[in-house]
């Protein structure tokens, strides 16, 4: 229901079709909020377009001269859209978002990666890569390898989510996470 005209408002609609009031419903998941398909392999161009379209409608700058209540709703919707966009844009955060949604649907309330450890092979990989970095291996070469591994890992995650293999997706997200940290550290060492 719309808070302003008290009329009907459909799920996922952010602006009342009858009276243009900003919705005060904040329960849509990030994919629905941005009008994106609920898949890991997101269309980044579409994500950008949708994001911009929604922000142009809901950014608080459009609601400077309205009641403080509607200002607040616009600010909250706009903040969620920013959060959703930043989350879906990022390979790790997007995976975590999908995992949480799947867990939630299965009735689990724990954090997405709670109790998940790196697979033994990945642990070994992490160890050897760290060792290479510390022992002064060529950073540029190492970086190239890590970026390649990240790409493979993202592809693997796409497969995991298509197959709805959430347990495997958790493992692969852990792996992508450590590769990302490593990438940052290599950059830091190069600088």
């Amino acid at each position: 229901m719309c808070w302003a005209c008290k009329g009907p408002m459909q799920q996922g609609v952010l602006i009342c079709p009858t009276c243009d009031a900003v919705s005060n419903c904040f329960t849509f998941d990030f994919f629905t909020l941005l009008g994106m398909d609920m898949v890991y392999n997101v269309d980044l161009k579409k994500l950008d377009d949708q994001y911009l379209k929604l922000q142009k409608l809901l950014h608080p700058d459009n609601y400077v001269q309205v009641s403080s209540r509607e200002q607040l709703y616009a600010a909250q919707q706009s903040a969620r859209i920013n959060d959703a966009y930043e989350t879906l844009k990022d390979d790790v955060d997007r995976a975590l978002c999908l995992i949480s949604m799947a867990d939630h649907a299965a009735g689990k309330t724990s954090d997405a990666l709670e109790g998940v450890a790196l697979a033994p092979d990945d642990l070994e990989l992490q160890f050897s890569l760290r060792e290479l970095l510390q022992n002064g291996a060529d950073a540029a070469t190492l970086l190239k390898d890590v970026v390649k591994m990240m790409k493979t890992c993202v592809k693997k995650l796409q497969k995991d989510f298509v197959e709805s293999d959430i347990t495997q997706a958790k493992q692969d997200t852990m792996k992508l996470k450590f590769l990302k940290v490593l990438e940052k550290d290599i950059h830091a060492q190069m600088a």
Binding site: A4, G7, P17, T18, C19, D20, E70
Partner: peptide, 18 residues
């Protein structure tokens, strides 16, 4: 006034539509 204006707009809009 802003609150009231918002409500009036909404009322007119709902009459227009339904």
């Amino acid at each position: 006034r802003l609150e009231l204006e918002r409500l009036c707009d909404a009322c007119y809009a709902s009459l227009q539509k339904d």
